[in-house]
Computed example of a mutant assay.
Amino acid sequence: MSTQSGPADGPLDPGLSAITSERRQLINLGYRLLGSLADAEDVVQETYVRWYAMSAEQRDAIDSPGAWLTKVAGRICLDLLRSARVRRERYVGAWIPEPLPDRTEWISGRPGGGAVDPADRVTLDESVNMAFLVVLEAMTPAERVAFILHDVFRYPFAEVAEIVGRSPAACRQLASSARRRMRASQAPVAAGTHAAPRADVVRDFKRAWEAQDIDALIGLLDPDVTAIADGGGLAQAALLPVDGGEQVARYLVDLSARAVGMTVLERTVNGQPGVVVQQDGVTVAVLALDVVGDRIHRIWAVRNPEKLRPWTAPGGGPTW
């Protein structure tokens, strides 16, 4: 997506650099609120459309363009979150937030395969951890917006209130409720966990999966592990979660046995160690892994090709 900055044949907006510099911040906000890079891009596009729909005099009267853009983007996201609940009731199987690669690993973020604009890359930190995003999905739209704006982006509750349409006190309560949900789920609220031990577990998981070693996989999986797949009706995936260490291990081995030419690669997924499954050089699945101690506690496997655009060009894949 390239954001239009104004009429092509007109003079450059003197405040253009200040306006376009907000784009990455808006992309980051939109992804955390919506769990979808594509939706975040649409929100940013619509936000800029509304900015340039105003007259030059109206834009000049705005003291803080960045605050105005954030307010508009936040309100658009809030509306989308409210409608998303209805859309996801019709979604085929489980809905998992769109996985993101490391900043150095982006391949294509465009349906047509165009290059990714650096301003569209999401900053990876604990607030895009898959476990964190999945808990956000269970929140009400108002809770999610209040929590992300205040706790992640550090907006004061007075400004959050203008976006959510509630009082600052009510927004404070919303954020507090969201924090309780995070603590109850044990999802990280802030950075601070160490990646090295997780990487070792993920490396051993990759080797055991490639070797189709059920016993080794069982040893790496928490006895109460849950694996959830998202095919979105566009790729075959288990419609229901697979629970239990032995059951998940056998499921993974069965997949690799049926997927001819499958390659498993260690990659950064949403800022943490994960794995990517390729067939004939094409990414067909991205697995985000929640490692607790020295065991894998949860697996989120994204197969929906529409959610894999930042990872690869469109292609076929194994039957899962």
Score class of each variant (00 low, 15 high):
residue 203 R to A: 14
residue 303 R to E: 08
residue 79 D to W: 09
residue 294 D to W: 08
residue 310 P to F: 01
residue 167 S to G: 10
residue 131 A to G: 06
residue 15 G to W: 12
residue 117 D to H: 10
residue 6 G to K: 07
residue 259 A to N: 14
residue 249 A to F: 02
residue 41 E to K: 13
residue 75 R to A: 10
residue 55 S to N: 07
residue 303 R to A: 03
residue 299 I to S: 01
residue 131 A to T: 07
residue 307 K to S: 13
residue 86 V to I: 13
residue 243 D to E: 15
residue 270 N to D: 15
residue 76 I to V: 14
residue 301 A to N: 12
residue 178 A to C: 03
residue 227 A to R: 02
residue 305 P to V: 08
residue 223 P to N: 11
residue 251 Y to V: 01
residue 39 D to M: 08
residue 80 L to A: 13
residue 159 E to S: 13
residue 162 E to F: 01
residue 112 G to M: 13
residue 162 E to H: 03
residue 169 A to C: 02
residue 86 V to N: 09
residue 76 I to F: 06
residue 174 L to Y: 05
residue 97 P to F: 06
residue 209 W to C: 00
residue 290 D to R: 11
residue 181 R to C: 04
residue 113 G to H: 11
residue 66 G to A: 13
residue 4 Q to F: 13
residue 283 T to K: 12
residue 183 R to E: 12
residue 303 R to N: 10
residue 101 P to M: 04
residue 316 G to Y: 05
residue 99 P to G: 09
residue 5 S to P: 03
residue 29 L to K: 00
residue 192 G to Y: 09
residue 244 G to V: 07
residue 89 E to Q: 12
residue 6 G to S: 01
residue 294 D to K: 04
residue 163 I to F: 03
residue 149 L to A: 03
residue 309 R to V: 15
residue 17 S to H: 13
residue 272 Q to R: 15
residue 79 D to I: 11
residue 250 R to Y: 07
residue 104 T to I: 09
residue 52 Y to P: 05
residue 94 A to E: 09
residue 150 H to W: 02
residue 140 T to L: 12
residue 114 G to Y: 06
residue 317 G to D: 06
residue 76 I to H: 08
residue 192 G to I: 04
residue 32 R to K: 05
residue 255 L to C: 12
residue 102 D to Y: 00
residue 218 I to P: 00
residue 103 R to I: 13
residue 202 V to P: 01
residue 148 I to A: 01
residue 227 A to Y: 10
residue 15 G to D: 14
residue 232 G to Y: 07
residue 178 A to K: 02
residue 320 W to R: 11
residue 298 R to D: 10
residue 69 L to K: 05
residue 179 R to V: 01
residue 49 V to A: 12
residue 73 A to L: 09
residue 148 I to D: 00
residue 252 L to G: 01
residue 153 F to Q: 00
residue 173 Q to F: 08
residue 169 A to M: 09
residue 290 D to A: 09
residue 307 K to V: 05
residue 91 Y to F: 14
residue 62 I to R: 02
residue 238 A to E: 14
residue 115 A to I: 10
residue 90 R to L: 14
residue 77 C to A: 13
residue 53 A to G: 15
residue 206 K to H: 10
residue 104 T to L: 09
residue 215 D to Y: 03
residue 7 P to R: 06
residue 142 A to C: 10
residue 111 P to N: 05
residue 3 T to W: 12
residue 230 D to L: 03
residue 127 S to F: 06
residue 165 G to D: 07
residue 147 F to N: 01
residue 147 F to G: 02
residue 225 V to D: 02
residue 94 A to D: 08
residue 194 H to A: 15
residue 317 G to V: 11
residue 181 R to T: 08
residue 248 V to K: 10
residue 268 T to V: 14
residue 40 A to C: 04
residue 263 T to F: 08
residue 107 I to M: 12
residue 245 G to S: 13
residue 88 R to L: 15
residue 3 T to C: 10
residue 67 A to Q: 15
residue 33 L to A: 08
residue 292 V to S: 12
residue 70 T to C: 00
residue 218 I to K: 01
residue 281 G to N: 11
residue 74 G to N: 03
residue 301 A to Q: 11
